[in-house]
Design a binder for these strands. Structure first.
Length: 560
RNA sequence: GCGCCUGUAGCUCAGUUGGAUAGAGCAUCUGCCUUCUAAGCAGGUUGUCGGGGGUUCGAAUCUCUCCAGGCGCACCA
């Protein structure tokens, strides 16, 4: 447990003790201690820690919050808490001031932990799977996928930092209707490229990339497939194109900093009979019925608005059927929790998939679906409808080429997944140097620069004396140290809420506090003791920035 | 029509189970490079937290309702 968490826990416990002992002394009446918070107040003048305990007790105790606060302080034992003074403020807050010396201990804690500073263990090794992007391999990755990739990958890293055993997975939809359409589109392009009259299929994929794929193929095999039976021809074309698309998807994601543990094929669920056996299982449990020649899942029994088809009247299973089998498979693989990141356009699917899981005997709460709102494309001030079918979209590759991986990942991770993003490429290009990511990276480069010069002075590895550390007592240094001490709590909150964007905000704040410190105080001063103390601070800040940027998948450059 | 999400400064957005004077970046104005990186710092300006009611000692946060925008409501995925 980190220093800061430790102090907070101690103070919280002592507050509970104080309330109990006041009650025992007959000075305070309450049935059950209500939930209260102990937190760092926003305003510095309110001290280092504040609690609302007196206020939440007011109702039960039938006394004014300020009176209760007085009683609580009287009974509070502050030994071992670093508390130096307590005061009552505002409507009945109790504000605590800590002995400033506790803060400097943070530096040693960071330096000892190194790359592990910030790691906590609320996960206790539980197995979590995060499935994200899972884009159809019928086109290139686009902006929506970029958002999913940034969010999913950072979430996975965050959970891992919080003590979970995390597996990243990509589900490949390599079968079904859309693949059929894909095949027809490829065939049309192939024939057209070879000068044949070929109508483009309705609902086909219009993207330019498909033409490129076919052109590349023709270079290799020429018109060899002109004379082949259409069905075989399509099968060949699809296999070739899927292979190429998946290779591109893998490479693009890798360049975006995403490494998957598992690439899972939908086809394998059909081949292994998992789809069939899952449907049989549901049927056995009485959740399947037949209507108009199709098999339906009674999802209304499971909280959905209407029943869903799982096997069409022509005998083929729907995507939903495969998805049920897929998620059953995930739980069978032993994951305690399974997280999916989906675009908000899939939200209608949430209730029925969770319902299907509970029908199969799994706790639907262990399937958590994060819906992120869509990325809307703006061109010349107007919304452009993005679609793979129409071929109208900005690719992840273009995004990286235009604004860079770091700026792109930071851009998405600065936002709550619940907010719709309007993305204007012209604006992004023009403002790319304004991206806050550079503010953070610049702080890191500055820190590195100081450390390089310290090395020349021969100071690099020399630990400061404790008495010198205690000289880091300016308001800039104290604010910085507090923020540093806060990282483990930030990780806990962010992991619990599954919100990696909190870390982007955190590291932005930290960088800001460092820049302020940098401009107000010099690190490489003549006073050796003070210099070494400040250097250790610099080293620790650099470590934290690099750790947090690592979670966000953003690089920490040593020079800029 | 029903369901989910959103509405906070001129713009883009933060704001953990309700807390103290609602924050940051961009924009704009004023200062700061003969000392560790000015992609920086300090300061100024900027608000009916979409509107209205309710709960509460206290509401941007909870609740009801209305308004505006996005997404969804297939034998597509």
């Amino acid at each position: 447990m980190s220093l800061y968490e430790n102090i907070k826990t101690r103070v919280t416990n002592q507050l509970v003790e104080a309330a109990n002992s006041a009650q025992a002394a007959g000075e305070l009446k309450f049935e059950e201690l209500p939930y209260f918070v102990l937190e760092e107040p926003r305003e510095r003048q309110h001290g280092d820690l504040a609690t609302n305990l007196a206020m939440v007790l007011a109702k039960q105790a039938k006394r004014s919050p300020r009176e209760i606060a007085t009683t609580l302080i009287k009974h509070l034992d502050t030994t071992g808490t670093w508390i130096e003074s307590s005061e009552i403020a505002g409507a009945g807050f109790i504000n605590f001031r800590l002995n400033p010396l506790w803060l400097t201990n943070v530096i040693g804690e960071v330096i000892n932990a190194g790359g592990l500073y910030g790691q906590v263990d609320i996960g206790k090794g539980q197995k979590i799977q995060v499935e994200f992007v899972s884009a159809n391999p019928t086109g290139l990755l686009h902006m929506g996928n970029a958002r999913g990739a940034a969010l999913g990958d950072s979430l996975a890293s965050l959970l891992s930092a919080a003590g979970y055993e995390v597996s990243r997975e990509f589900y490949i939809n390599d079968t079904g209707n859309q693949i059929h359409n894909f095949a027809l589109s490829l065939e049309a392009r192939y024939l057209q490229q070879l000068g044949q009259e070929a109508p483009f299929p309705e609902g086909g994929y219009h993207g330019e990339d498909l033409i490129d794929t076919v052109k590349g193929l023709i270079v290799k095999v020429g018109d060899k497939y002109l004379a082949v039976e259409p069905e075989l021809r399509r099968e060949f074309l699809v296999r070739y194109a899927l292979d190429e698309k998946m290779r591109d998807i893998r490479e693009t994601l890798q360049d975006f900093g995403v490494e998957y543990d598992v690439w899972f094929n939908e086809q394998s669920l059909h081949d292994s009979g998992a789809v069939r056996s899952t449907m049989e299982e549901l049927e056995k449990k009485g959740y399947i019925y037949e209507k108009e020649g199709a098999l339906w899942l009674k999802s209304t029994l499971l909280g959905d608005e209407k029943d869903e088809v799982v096997v069409r009247s022509n005998g083929t299973p729907t995507y939903f059927a495969a998805d049920i089998a897929y998620h059953r498979n995930k739980f069978e693989r032993g994951f305690n929790r399974v997280i999916n990141i989906w675009g908000s356009d899939h939200h209608g699917h949430v209730a029925r998939l969770k319902g299907a899981m509970s029908a199969l005997g799994y706790d639907p709460d262990n399937l958590q679906i994060i819906l992120m709102q869509l990325v809307r494309l703006i061109q010349n001030g107007e919304v452009v409808k993005m679609s793979k079918r129409s071929g109208q979209y900005i690719t992840l590759r273009e995004l990286m080429d235009e604004v860079g991986k770091d700026a792109a990942r930071f851009f998405f991770n600065l936002r709550d997944p619940d907010s719709t993003v309007d993305f204007d490429m012209d604006l992004a290009r023009a403002q790319s140097s304004d991206n806050p990511v550079y503010y953070v990276q610049y702080a890191h480069a500055r820190l590195c620069s100081i450390l390089r010069q310290a090395e020349e002075l021969g100071d690099a590895g020399v630990p400061p004396l404790e008495e010198d550390l205690n000289r880091l007592d300016s308001s800039e240094e104290r604010d910085l140290l507090k923020k540093m001490a806060d990282l483990p709590s930030e990780i806990i909150v962010a992991a619990r809420l599954m919100e990696p964007h909190r870390l982007a905000r955190y590291v932005l704040d930290l960088a800001g506090l460092f820049h302020t410190f940098y401009n107000s105080q010099r690190v490489l001063v003549d006073d050796v003791g003070l210099r070494r103390a400040r250097l250790s601070l610099v080293k620790a800040v650099k470590q934290i920035i690099s750790n947090v940027l690592g979670i966000l998948g953003v690089s920490a450059p040593e020079r800029m």
